[in-house]
Design a protein around this nucleic acid. Structure first.
Length: 755
DNA sequence: CAGTGAGCGAGCTTCCGCTTGACTT
C-alpha cells in the first residue's frame, strides 16, 4: 500500500478516483505544525531557531497520518507545488519520522527513504499519474523561504503588537499585512477629509438631425461643449458660463466631423480569488467573506475548481470542452481560431492551482443541487460566464466621435447694425448684390463633442456584458442640426471613493500583500479589532484605527511602508533560488527592527485616542460632558472628567419625540440586528413591538442618547459608617475578593475560546 | 448578561497562511 498526502479532502476524493486500489489518500487540511500561539517560539539568540508545535485541532489528522504511514511502503508528499505546500510536506516528514529518529538514530535515513515528493499543477489523471511515476525530493530552499516568511511575520506581529498594548491600548494588534491594509484605509480617509471640492461646469446640448421626413423626428443625442474659440472649455463660475449658454441658445449647429474607428476588445481572463471577489462585490454586492463561503460550498460539491488561487492557467481539457460547447451553442463565429491563454500578472503569484472555473462546462446551473441556494447560483453563474467568455471571440465595436460646430446665429441685417460697429462682426456678403444682409459674430465659435460606440459583434460580451453602449445616429459632415435644449450643469470635483471589499482586495493584490487564502480574513481582522467600520459597503477607519495607524507609521515607518512586503518577497525568492540563507535574511531585517522596538518602547509618547462628544452634560457630576469611548465590549458613554467622575452608560439611538405605537409608554429605539437596522420599543422584552420602518415623520430624527448604568461601588454608600465596621468589612472583602476575582477571570477565558 | 476608560502591575492580549468542520448568534 502507498500513501498519498494532499492538502484538501476534496482533492483527496478526486485522487481516489484516479489512483484506485493500492493507494491510500489522505488530506493534511493545510498546515499541521506551526509556531506556538501563546509565545514567540523563536530563539532569537540562536539563529532564530523556530519552535514548532502541533497545530490545534490537528491531532486527529496527525494520528491518522502516522498510522497510515507506518503501514505504507511509500509515502507521496503531494501537497501544493508552492512555498507553503513545500513547507507543509516538510513538516509532515518531520512529524512522521520524529518518533523513529529518537528510537534508533541510525535508521532515520531508512525511514525517510519511504518519503518522496510528488507535484502536479493540474488535477487530471495524466498529470497525477506522471507525478506519481516521477517523484522528486523536497526542495529545502523553498522550505527555508517559507520559514523565513513565517519567522519574519511572527517577529513583526509579536514585537509590534505589545508596543501598541503599552502605548495605545491593551489587546490591539499589528502585523506586516493588516497594518498596511489599515494604512490604505486611513490614508484614503485623510485624503477625503482634506479634499476641497472645486466647482466646475459642464454644458450639454441636445440636438437632432434635420434629415428625414417632417413628421418623424430624428432621434436626439447629446453633445458636450468641448472648445470655445480653439480653447478647451473650462469654467469654475456661473458668470463664466452664462454668456456661452446665451450664445449656444441662439447658435446654429452643423456637424463638423464624424470619426469612426473599429475597436476590438479581448475577453477578460478567467477568475482568480482576487478578481472573483472583486466581480462578486461589484456585480452582486457580496462581501469577500460571503463570496469565499459560497465558493467553498461549490468547490466541495465538485462544481468549480479550487477557489483559492492566483493563477489564470486553464487545463487544456477544460479549454477544449469549452471550445466545443461554444461552437455548438453559439456558433463558429463566437469561437476564436485558437484557444486563448492568459498570463498571470499578480505580483507574488505562486500558481499552484488553476484559475477558478466550472468543472463541467455543460452545467449551466447549480440550482437544486444539495443545499445550494440562490447565492450559490448567482456566484456559479458568474464563474461559468467568465470562464466561457474567456474562450470566446473578441467583441467588435464601431467607436464614433462626432464634433458639432456651433456658430453665431444668422441675424437679419436690420437687427445687426449696432453690433457691426464693434468691429468684431463680419458682414456676410449677399451673393447676389453685395449688400450685407446678415451679420455673424465670429468671435464665438464652439465645438461640441459626443462619443459613442456601436457594438458590431458582441463576441464574449454575450456572456459577460460590460459597459452600456451609447449609440449615436449616423450623420453626414456639414449637415445642420436642430437644437432642442441647452443645459449647464454645476459640478464639483469628487475625492477618491473609500475602499470597499473589491477595491481593497484589488489594491492589496497589486501591492503583493496578502494571499488568496487571506484576503477576506484581512478585512475581518480590521473589523474585529475595531480599526474600521462600514458605511454601506465602504470602509471607514474608527478613531482607534486612525490612532493605531498614525502611531505605527510614525514609529515603524519601514515595516508600514507599502514596499516592505515587496522587498521581503525579493529576499524570499533569493532564498528559494538558493542564493541566500534564510537566517541571514531574517537577521538583516531583525537587527534594526529590534533596536527600533526598544527605542519606541522606551521613548515614544503614549497615544491619545480621540473621543466623540455627545453634546450633553454628565448627569452625575453635572460638570463634565458626555463622551463616547470604546472599551473591551464596544462603545459606551462616559464622563469626560474620568477618572474624577466615573459615570458610565449604555449608548443607544432613540427616535426623537415618538412613543411606542403599541404600548404608548416606551421610547422608540433604533437597533442593529443581524438583518440590518430595525426599530423597537425601549420596554423590550415587556413590549415586543418592532418595525423595519422608522415611525413618526421626517422630523423625528434618530439621536444619540444613553441609559445610565447602575453606580459601581456598593461601598461608597456606606463609606460614612464607623471605622470599626469598615475594618471588618475590609477583611471580609479581602477574603471574598480572592475567589471572586478568580470567578471574574473564568468567564474571560471562556470568551477567548468563543472567539 | 455584564461592563468597559487610567494606573496600581496578577496574567493576559498579538502575527500570516494553509486547510475544513464544529460550533453558536
Amino acid at each position: 500500500m502507498n500513501l498519498v498526502i494532499v492538502e484538501s479532502p476534496t482533492k483527496a476524493k478526486t485522487l481516489r478516483r484516479f489512483l484506485g486500489q493500492g493507494y491510500a489518500i489522505e488530506a493534511s487540511m493545510g498546515h499541521i505544525r506551526d509556531l506556538p500561539k501563546s509565545k514567540l517560539g523563536i530563539d532569537v539568540a540562536h539563529d532564530f531557531a523556530p519552535e514548532y508545535v502541533k497545530s490545534e485541532g490537528k491531532t486527529k489528522t496527525i494520528t491518522t497520518l502516522k498510522k497510515l504511514s507506518k503501514e505504507a511502503e511509500k509515502i507521496y508528499l503531494a501537497t501544493d507545488p508552492d512555498r507553503e505546500g513545500e513547507a507543509i510536506s516538510w513538516h509532515i516528514l518531520q512529524l512522521l519520522t520524529e518518533a523513529e529518529k529518537s528510537k534508533i538514530k541510525n535508521s532515520k535515513s531508512k525511514k525517510e527513504e519511504k518519503f518522496v515528493r510528488a507535484t502536479f499543477h493540474e488535477i487530471t489523471k495524466q498529470a497525477i499519474m506522471h507525478a506519481i511515476e516521477h517523484p522528486g525530493e523536497l526542495n529545502m530552499d523553498l522550505v527555508d523561504a517559507q520559514q523565513a516568511r513565517r519567522v519574519v511575520d511572527r517577529l513583526v506581529g509579536y514585537y509590534m503588537s505589545p508596543v501598541l498594548w503599552k502605548k495605545v491600548r491593551r489587546g490591539l494588534s499589528a502585523g506586516r499585512v493588516q497594518s498596511v491594509a489599515l494604512r490604505l484605509i486611513v490614508e484614503r480617509e485623510k485624503e477625503i477629509q482634506a479634499f476641497v471640492p472645486q466647482e466646475y461646469w459642464e454644458i450639454y446640448v441636445a440636438v437632432h438631425s434635420q434629415q428625414g421626413t417632417a413628421n418623424s423626428q430624428q432621434p436626439s443625442f447629446t453633445v458636450q461643449l468641448w472648445k470655445v474659440n480653439d480653447k478647451e472649455f473650462a469654467a469654475s463660475k456661473k458668470e463664466d458660463v452664462e454668456p456661452i449658454v446665451a450664445h449656444l441658445e441662439s447658435a446654429s449647429y452643423i456637424v463638423d466631423s464624424v470619426d469612426s474607428t473599429k475597436r476590438k476588445r479581448q475577453s477578460l481572463p478567467p477568475f482568480t480569488t482576487s478578481t472573483l471577489q472583486q466581480a462578486a462585490a461589484n456585480r452582486l454586492g457580496f462581501s469577500s467573506k460571503r463570496t469565499m463561503t459560497l465558493a467553498q460550498n461549490l468547490y466541495e460539491q465538485g462544481l468549480i475548481t479550487y477557489h483559492r488561487t492566483d493563477s489564470v492557467n486553464l487545463a487544456t481539457s477544460a479549454v477544449e470542452t469549452a471550445r466545443s460547447y461554444i461552437g455548438a451553442t453559439y456558433g463558429e463565429k463566437y469561437l476564436p481560431s485558437s484557444p486563448r491563454s492568459f498570463q498571470t500578472k499578480s505580483k507574488n503569484a505562486q500558481e499552484a492551482h488553476e484559475a477558478i472555473r466550472p468543472t463541467e462546462v455543460t452545467r449551466t446551473s447549480v440550482e437544486g443541487i444539495g443545499q445550494l441556494d440562490e447565492g450559490h447560483q448567482k456566484l456559479y453563474d458568474l464563474i461559468w460566464r467568465r470562464f466561457l467568455a474567456c474562450q470566446m471571440s473578441e467583441a467588435l465595436y464601431d467607436q464614433t466621435t462626432i464634433v458639432v460646430k456651433a456658430t453665431p446665429p444668422v441675424i437679419p441685417y436690420s437687427q445687426a447694425e449696432g453690433l457691426a460697429s464693434t468691429g468684431s462682426h463680419q458682414k456676410v456678403q449677399d451673393s447676389f448684390n453685395g449688400i450685407p444682409q446678415q451679420v455673424r459674430d465670429d468671435k464665438v465659435v464652439c465645438l461640441l463633442k459626443a462619443a459613442g460606440s456601436v457594438l458590431l459583434f458582441d463576441g464574449w460580451t454575450k456572456l459577460f456584458p460590460n459597459k452600456e453602449d451609447v449609440e449615436l445616429p449616423s450623420l453626414t459632415v456639414g449637415e445642420s442640426l436642430t437644437k432642442e435644449k441647452v443645459e449647464a450643469l454645476q459640478k464639483f470635483t469628487q475625492p477618491k471613493p473609500r475602499y470597499n471589499d473589491a477595491s481593497l482586495v484589488k489594491t492589496l493584490e497589486k501591492l503583493g500583500i496578502g494571499r488568496p487564502s487571506t484576503y477576506s480574513s484581512i478585512i475581518s481582522v480590521l473589523e474585529i479589532r475595531g480599526y474600521v467600520e462600514r458605511i454601506q459597503k465602504a470602509f471607514v477607519p474608527t478613531s482607534i484605527g486612525t490612532t493605531v495607524c498614525d502611531f505605527l507609521v510614525k514609529n515603524f515607518p519601514k515595516e508600514l511602508d507599502y514596499a516592505f512586503t515587496a522587498g521581503m518577497e525579493d529576499s524570499l525568492d533569493a532564498i528559494s533560488r538558493g542564493e541566500k540563507q534564510w537566517v541571514s535574511v531574517v537577521k538583516q531585517f531583525f537587527a534594526p527592527f529590534e533596536k527600533n522596538v526598544e527605542t519606541v518602547t522606551g521613548e515614544a509618547a503614549r497615544a491619545q485616542i480621540p473621543v466623540e462628544e455627545m453634546g450633553q452634560a454628565c448627569p452625575l457630576c453635572h460638570e463634565g460632558k458626555l463622551v463616547i469611548r470604546t472599551g473591551r465590549f464596544g462603545k459606551f458613554v462616559s464622563c469626560s472628567r474620568y477618572p474624577t467622575c466615573t459615570f458610565t452608560g449604555k449608548l443607544i439611538f432613540k427616535v426623537d419625540g415618538v412613543t411606542c405605537p403599541e404600548c404608548g409608554q416606551g421610547e422608540v429605539r433604533q437597533r442593529q440586528g443581524k438583518r440590518g437596522i430595525f426599530f423597537g420599543c425601549s420596554r423590550y422584552p415587556s413590549c415586543k413591538w418592532t418595525s423595519w420602518q422608522k415611525p413618526g415623520t421626517a422630523d423625528n430624527q434618530v439621536v444619540m442618547s444613553y441609559v445610565a448604568n447602575p453606580p459601581k461601588s456598593v461601598d461608597s454608600e456606606q463609606s460614612t459608617d464607623s471605622s470599626e465596621k469598615e475594618n471588618k468589612k475590609e477583611e471580609k472583602n479581602i477574603k471574598q475578593q480572592v475567589p471572586s476575582s478568580k470567578k471574574v477571570r473564568k468567564p474571560k477565558k471562556e470568551l477567548k475560546v468563543k472567539k
